[in-house]
Write a protein that binds this DNA or RNA. Structure first.
Lengths: 248, 248
DNA sequence: TCCCGCTTTTTGGTCTAATCATATTACTTT
DNA sequence: AAAGTAATATGATTAGACCAAAAAGCGGGA
């Protein structure tokens, strides 16, 4: 068992570095496959921890580790108590948005990139909303819209309703993936953007006008118009944001 | 300790349901804050598990659970052995793309929605690539492009290089978030799309022509042209995909 | 008969205390 | 000095116990 000899042999034969997977990872992979293949459907439960221990041959810690992985991934929800257990569920939008937010925060993504992202996605969402919206969704947008128009000097309220307005439009697009993306980038944008770019009365008035125009296009089910007006609205916002130095 | 009495009191006073957070979640939140606030920088290590046990007062299981959460989130990487530990890192693009893929698979997102997503994002990436690309990135794209043009009847090879081509364009955009999004949706698309829509020689020839045109626009650093040509290319692809019934 | 209240049972959550595996460091020997 | 060997710090894994929550079962009384 000479280590040098072993190393030489390894180099000579060209053994690739062997990665030793963790027991919990292997079990997590298997359980994930079970879920994704549809063997266990949403609402149903995985076997109890103690069952998994006996069937897998692993210890309870490893089993719990595996379950914890799936929980973070949003594939299961665990509840204590009898008839509790690991209940399979479809990951919600937050399971997508959360990692994205972590990514944005960790990499200190510039506001510029976030707005870029928004500019790419939101006009599209507006166009889809124009063609795909239901009556309930439209009513929801209108309700938020009216409240938004009614805001005056309460900046926090203005920002909150502005955000809600955009998210309501997004939800009407019926594209779950793009909605999740919007949700993910909205929070960082509205945190990073600060209050300065909406301080003047004029800017807020223009935003309200733009919202009205976009909503009108959506009500008329005119996707091209909604797309262009949203793009113009965001362009104006970006121009304002750009003239203001970053707070960081 | 009459339970009925307690319940009535609770209803009367209007006590909100109290959520009992798990110990590991609390610790995970704290450690995550430490990382995101920059108190522990990428490359540095968190305290060892045994240290965390003594400072937090929790058991080793809970501490390990917390660390496992952060690991799944891509915030740390753990390595065994002396001078191992939980090393802080920035989440990579995979940490964003993976949850998105799980979301797509779990919700059985239609190919239509995925292509929509792509249509929203990729023309934008092409435009940004036109203005932001470096010489190395352009050389990389060209290398893949040449290999792509050289493919003939090997469909697997064609599809692989096609995917790589699109991702290379995306990388040149320098928008990390949109790159991650592209990576995330590319795999499901190319899995779901099957082989049928690229079976005819004519379709492949047109795709090659379109790639050439897009690349040309990028080399000329003309963002509008790159945007429009990419949109047209994707539109053509979607038309083809739409004429073919889903494989599911 | 039906409902309240107690007990039982199942399940996840937490803790303790070892032991194993791995990789680095420190030491010893040649 | 270089090479080999022992000590050590770290995560990975196991085992077993007990706690807490929540549902199910049971029994007595209105």
């Amino acid at each position: 068992m000479n280590s040098k000899l072993g190393s030489d042999l390894g180099d000579a034969v060209g053994i690739a570095p062997i990665s030793v997977p963790k027991a919990s990872d292997i079990l997590a992979d298997r359980l994930r496959d079970l879920i994704l293949s549809g063997s266990v459907k949403p609402g149903e439960s995985l076997p109890s921890e103690r069952d998994l221990v006996s069937t897998s041959g692993l210890s309870r810690s490893s089993v719990r580790d595996a379950l914890r992985i799936l929980e973070v991934e949003g594939l299961i929800a665990t509840r204590p108590g009898r008839s509790g257990g690991s209940i399979v569920q479809r990951p919600d939008r937050q399971s997508v948005a959360r990692p994205m937010e972590l990514f944005v925060k960790s990499h200190e993504i510039h506001l510029e990139s976030l707005l870029d992202c928004r500019l790419a996605v939101e006009p599209f969402l507006a166009a889809r909303a124009a063609t795909h919206h239901t009556d309930e969704e439209l009513a929801d947008i209108r309700r938020i819209h009216e409240k938004f128009l009614a805001t005056t000097d309460n900046l926090a309220e203005y920002k909150k309703l502005n955000l809600e307005w955009h998210l309501a439009i997004a939800r009407s697009s019926h594209n779950e993936l793009l909605i999740a993306l919007m949700e993910a980038i909205s929070h960082p944008i509205h945190e990073a953007a600060g209050y300065r770019e909406v301080t003047t009365e004029q800017i807020r008035a223009e935003a309200k006008k733009a919202h009205c125009a976009i909503l009108e296009a959506i009500e008329e089910r005119n996707p091209e118009l909604a797309h262009n007006r949203m793009a113009k609205h965001l362009g104006a916002y970006m121009d304002v944001a750009r003239t203001i130095p970053n707070s960081e």
